Amino acid sequence: MRILNQVKTAGLLGLLSGLIVLASYYLVGNESGLYLGLAIAAFMSFSSWYYSDQAALASFRAQPLAPEASPDLYRTIERLSDRAGLPMPKVFVAPLDTPNAFATGRDPDHATIAVTQGLLNSLSSEEIEAVIAHELTHIRNRDTLIQAVAGTLAGGITFLGRILTLGALYGPFSGRPGQRGNNPLVLFFLIIGAPLSAGLIQMAISRTREYAADLGAVGITGDPLALASALQKLEGLSHKFPMRANPAMVPLLTVNPLSKKGLMALFMTHPPTEERIRRLQALAQEKQQETQNTPALAA
């Protein structure tokens, strides 16, 4: 399953890069656009890889948390990082009432875990451990890099779509030496369909990674019900304390705090919380049955 998810993620990232190349090719009108698109995709991928943590932390106004300010939290993260086989990440806190958390950073050696003040105030120690383990799994699986690259590429596609829109409104793209004629269907797709497709692909990548992070968290803590309880609280309290978040950064969060009604359901960055909880509860039952059957097998 892990390999299948990695292949699926790589394929979706490839589609995003392909859309950028196609848009650049059509914008320039000849083969030079292919090279321009590849250069844009490479530049965006490198920029998001190197600077994604700064953008995410600034978006949520997160600040470094000193060890003496929250020694229990630091000890928890150190212990769980050791279990996960990861170096100790930097720890930040965001001054938000909505309980949530996220991980960011270009690799495990440059990773950061940020929690909101609402999470520290609302969850039990076991639930906080489960959420931290979930975010550590994102770091171990390098989901922080994947999500940053996907978001940046999707944003680039939207930007190119806007340029094409202006060109279609104020002047044709054809007519320059070496440039191919316009195809209205391709132009329509690049202006409307490509940005929409990019958004849907970005969300699909995020949803694919969340189930894996839930499973990894259980492997670290051994307590699926603690994560199920944490997710239930995060989901409920996100309605009581709404978060004004940059939609581009929402895939990083443990639970999506934005609306999931109507058309917004198409752009869900996370699987339904109810389904995540159901899977965790089923996993807890499996673990309980294995525990009960072990003495019988030994006998």
Rank of each mutant, 00 (worst) to 15 (best):
A248R: 04
L227K: 01
T254P: 03
T269M: 05
D214N: 09
F267C: 03
L234F: 05
G262R: 06
L266K: 02
A248S: 09
E235I: 00
L234M: 12
G216R: 03
I220R: 00
F241T: 09
V250R: 04
Q232E: 11
T254W: 09
K261A: 15
H239V: 02
F267W: 15
N246Q: 11
L231E: 05
A217H: 06
A213K: 08
L227N: 09
L252S: 03
P247V: 01
T254G: 11
H239F: 13
P242F: 07
N246M: 12
T221A: 11
P242N: 07
K233E: 07
S238W: 00
N256A: 13
L263W: 14
L253R: 03
G219Y: 01
F267N: 03
L266I: 07
K261C: 06
K261W: 00
S259V: 15
G216D: 11
A217L: 09
G222D: 10
V250D: 04
F267G: 03
L215V: 09
L253N: 08
K260A: 11
Q232T: 12
L258S: 10
A213I: 10
S238R: 05
P242R: 00
K240D: 15
R244V: 09
L234D: 02
N246H: 07
P271V: 02
T269Y: 02
L253M: 12
G219H: 09
H270T: 09
S259K: 15
L231G: 00
P257I: 10
M243Y: 03
A213E: 13
L225G: 07
G219N: 14
K233L: 05
K260D: 08
L258N: 15
S259C: 13
A228C: 13
K261L: 11
A230L: 07
K261F: 08
L263A: 15
P257L: 10
P257W: 08
L227V: 15
P271F: 09
T269I: 06
P247S: 08
G262F: 13
V255Q: 00
S229E: 04
R244D: 15
P271C: 01
P242G: 10
L227C: 12
N256R: 05
L252Y: 12
R244M: 14
K233D: 07
L227R: 07
P271H: 11
F241R: 02
T269S: 15
S229M: 05
G219C: 03
K233I: 01
R244L: 13
L227S: 06
L231W: 02
P271K: 05
P272G: 07
T269Q: 04
A226K: 06
T221I: 08
P257T: 12
A230M: 05
L225T: 15
V250L: 04
P251Y: 01
S238A: 03
I220S: 00
P224N: 13
P272D: 12
